[in-house]
Design a protein around this nucleic acid. Structure first.
Lengths: 211, 211, 211, 211
DNA sequence: AATGAATGAGAATTCATTCAT
DNA sequence: AATGAATGAATTCTCATTCAT
């Protein structure tokens, strides 16, 4: 009743449905989530969902699309403030961890649910994810150009090296029930990424072999 | 051989059903796969599947259980032949890549489908995956003891660093339609893991900061 | 009104489904009745049934529960009008016969279908049936207290004697295709119940033996 | 030789299957009994049942047919020894109760399971049951001719009066878990059947009304 | 004759989506 | 715009029956 009528009521309702969908997908998984669960949590009727979204798939796609866009924008803004390549790199890692820390349900959906489902979803995912991977790639390339990262590495591999580690770290944290503070992993991860596993002698030996 | 798991004579049929399930789950995903699809591909009647497996979930669990066991055994056997820590590490990476290369559909199921579904599946997954992560952990610890890897790193993090990267690399390869030869990535990944991203000066700088 | 049992508005639909279930169960028996038969007869979609009833079992239970309740209430109301014990007894018999006469399909379900099925159904049946048997018992006890019925008879046996006869008479009538008017049996049954089979001399002889 | 079906090993197997069917039907009910349950209990393979019986229905029919025949024969033999009408009547009741007492599982099947199922089963039941009801009728008619039972009663009603009561008494006893000795009910039932419920004055009054 | 693995028709139930109100 | 009762297509699983061995 006290709700204002007008055009923002629409987008408020849309927002509520989307947030509810994130929660329900996070808890039950996409296929086991019922549209009526989402409706109940959003406080709307089942049918109302179809005024804002084409179908159930569209809900998942919209989550991905809109949240990913928000994240990309936020990340680019944050990175714009940093000029030093190493600082930019740290910033990226810290934001990735902080982001999932702040929205753990979103984390569950993006990490777990989007890993599945129909072909078209997979295709879709690739496109959107590419933006994020490209961002990682840019930061690394900057580092190479500023001379803080090695230049002899295939960028495509480095992107996955970084993204895969972050991804696995977050997945583990989600599946383990989020038992600790994700952001504390920023420095250890920086160390791992930058220095690698090897001790100096071994690195030299390995470098010699590959040369 | 220590074969005979099942109660049923024709364990060829069991094998055929399991293989068909891997294919169908890989192609459609668990929830969109129909039991009758699996039956048709296996060349048996729908009902026959229920002579060998309790239900559809049991199919997925059995794939995971049996394939993961095979993989773990194979890996441990292979690693037993190597004594040098760096060689063992390379062996692990090479086998991970070669394994998925050889069974790409299995890769899809293990990489994509098992990332989802019901809670109990997630629990289940954790247990079995732990074996693999433990194997990775052992190899790294050996490396630390033999003095080829740094000893100041939290093992839990290193495991995810390696596993996450391999995982992401394989996932990308699967989702991209397996366009190249996975095993060619063995050396570049070794290089990345061991040397990290940084150039010497930066590494020194970073090490100084964290000291 | 003290109506609203269900959560659903259209309680006409609930009624139609229940009536259809009575018909179909009566015709085919519980296990051979298909839910879709009931839906078709009720003029609703299969799924609609599940908006009003938990499952197929629940349909049978609901029939029993609701119809039995109605019957018990109706009987108690009718009996409340009669004070003379013999009149009450006749009233009970007449109503039992008239009731099934009026709802022959209900008779078939209550007489035939509820005699079977799962353990829990049997348990259930016992509880509800007890109310009816208790009613019979009360009427007989009144008769004993008013001195119109013998007082040397175990009530538990008398109840079954009366109920069993009525039950068998109705069952036969149902299974024979309802070829005659049930209510015409009221007086002959009264006679049988009250006077028994024996001629006076035999009664005396038997009484002497048991004394 | 006597059987004419072949060697007695066969008919032993047939017997074992039939006995198993009685047990399983008694425990689970016809529709919820699985043929494989019966096979397991009989110690034969599923398929073997179909060498002796046409199908599952045939098992139930055979139980009824053969057991009912045995009972009818046994009853006629026993009744042949008695000449006094009242003694014959007591004998009938006592045997009915003793029979079910001795074979409680058979009681459950005949009392509960045969009350249901398909039309054709009901038809079938009527035919077979008729023999038993006819037997009851004969005994009563003898009593009427010997002047120990009233002659103004419709025989069809008297049969159901007796059968219904016995039936209900046995059903109750079966469903209650057979808590007491059925045969102890012989005399009380005789009393009820012969003397009825009424006290002499009431009987006179009722007789006057109906005259 | 006996077996029991295999069959596949059949049925209950779910739930995304629609549409009359 | 919002509702939510109604829909009915879709899918898993069961089990009586068959038939190759």
């Amino acid at each position: 009743m006290a709700e204002g009528r007008g055009n923002h009521r629409n987008s408020d309702k849309r927002r509520r449905i989307l947030d509810a969908a994130v929660s329900v997908f996070a808890e039950k998984g996409f296929f086991q989530a019922r549209v009526s669960d989402i409706a109940r949590l959003a406080g709307v009727a089942d049918g109302t969902i179809y005024l804002y979204f084409k179908n159930k798939d569209d809900l998942l796609i919209s989550i991905f699309e809109e949240k990913m866009k928000e994240i990309n924008v936020k990340f680019r803004d944050a990175l714009a403030c940093e000029k030093d390549a190493l600082a930019r790199f740290r910033c990226l890692i810290a934001m990735h961890l902080a982001g999932f820390q702040a929205y753990p349900e979103l984390a569950a959906v993006l990490q777990v649910e989007l890993r599945q489902s129909s072909r078209f979803m997979r295709e879709y995912k690739k496109v959107e994810l590419k933006n994020y991977l490209d961002l990682v790639g840019e930061v690394v390339r900057d580092g190479q150009q500023q001379g803080v990262f090695r230049q002899d590495l295939p960028l495509s591999l480095v992107k996955r090296f970084i993204f895969g580690t972050l991804d696995e770290v977050v997945s583990t944290w989600v599946l383990a029930g989020r038992p600790y503070d994700l952001e504390t992993l920023t420095e250890p991860l920086m160390d791992l990424f930058v220095n690698g596993l090897g001790v100096p002698e071994v690195k030299a030996r390995l470098a010699g072999m590959n040369a």
